[in-house]
């Protein structure tokens, strides 16, 4: 971690934060529709993991995908247009928030069914292995996916075939609305994969330098063709499972604690303490992100709604 890295990560995190806060407003005013899942409070993981990757590395995400797509380099104006259902959206308005894809930047896609992305990531990792490429696949998933059968099927195969894939679990302690202790007797996801013998670790997702370091070690090994690895990041989603969730299951005390451990605030403090940035520069990073998001909203609003006829054109590849 140095000044350049920290500044880069702060930029990404602020872009995600501003994007998602803007989406909250747009959802309330019905300019974004459907089901929206936000990662506010968890931006550090997306920024630190994707910040280390190249465009030709593959990332898979789930329903809570905005941050991963932004951090992987997907253009925010086209992401915003997608959320607003416009023809210039990354998926031309056919996918929406839960199904973002930007293949050009290696964001291979988000899937709407919990854990459905895990076997897909294995396929991509196998491709890289067969091509003897130094490309790495990263798959993000939540703690809720760990209890799904395809998680175990994927873990066994990845371990057996030693695939260059890094499983990144964002363990926010809730599978949708249910806490982890109601889902499993094993608290840490990294312990669930213990029988399979590959390298794994658990870090605090709010500690961005720790995520950066831990992921970096796995990434270097995976570039050399080793794998799999599992990085568990303990995070907290500061908003509900989805926008509109009444969150009756939430613990107010934990919420306060996590607000204090906000990854953006923490990394900003660290950068100030180290003298990497001053207050003015910190404010500028936030302001730049805000302006970029406003520009993205303008872009999206100007984009027309898609021609309905494209629905029929895109069912089969031609």
């Amino acid at each position: 971690m140095d000044a350049d890295v920290a500044i880069g990560l702060l930029r990404t995190m602020w872009r995600i934060r501003c994007f998602e806060e803007r989406v909250v407003q747009l959802k309330r005013s019905l300019q974004v529709h459907g089901l929206i899942h936000l990662s506010i409070g968890g931006e550090g993981v997306a920024a630190a993991v994707c910040g280390r990757l190249r465009d030709d590395d593959a990332v898979y995400s789930g329903h809570r995908a905005h941050g991963h797509a932004i951090a992987k380099g997907a253009p925010i104006d086209r992401l915003m247009a997608e959320l607003m259902g416009r023809s210039d959206g990354v998926c031309r308005g056919l996918g929406g928030s839960m199904h973002l894809v930007d293949a050009e930047h290696g964001f291979m896609g988000a899937t709407g069914v919990v854990g459905g992305n895990l076997p897909l990531a294995l396929g991509t990792a196998l491709t890289h292995h067969l091509q003897e490429a130094d490309r790495v696949t990263v798959v993000f998933f939540g703690d809720g996916a760990v209890q799904a059968g395809h998680f175990n099927e994927s873990i066994n195969l990845a371990a057996l075939w030693r695939l260059p894939v890094i499983f990144v679990c964002e363990n926010n302690g809730f599978a949708e609305f249910t806490s982890r202790e109601e889902h499993s007797t094993i608290e840490r996801v990294s312990d669930v994969v213990a029988p399979y013998g590959f390298e794994r670790t658990t870090v605090k997702g709010s500690d961005v330098p720790a995520v950066w370091e831990a992921f970096g070690g796995f990434l270097d090994a995976a570039r050399g063709g080793e794998g799999p690895f599992l990085l568990e990041c303990l995070t907290y989603r500061r908003r509900g499972h989805y926008e509109g969730d009444q969150q009756k299951y939430r613990d107010a005390a934990a919420e306060q604690e996590w607000a204090e451990r906000d990854p953006v605030a923490q990394l900003t403090r660290r950068a100030l303490d180290e003298g990497w940035i001053d207050d003015e520069a910190a404010a500028a990073i936030e302001a730049e992100a805000g302006e970029a998001i406003e520009e993205a909203v303008r872009f999206a609003r100007e984009s027309p709604f898609p021609e309905p006829a494209i629905t029929a054109e895109l069912v089969y590849a031609r």
Binding site: Q147, G149, N152, E153, E182
Partner: peptide
Amino acid sequence: SKQGAFHESLNLASL
């Protein structure tokens, strides 16, 4: 034991 059903079931039975 490589079927998802194994994993899902043993987790639940233990829980």
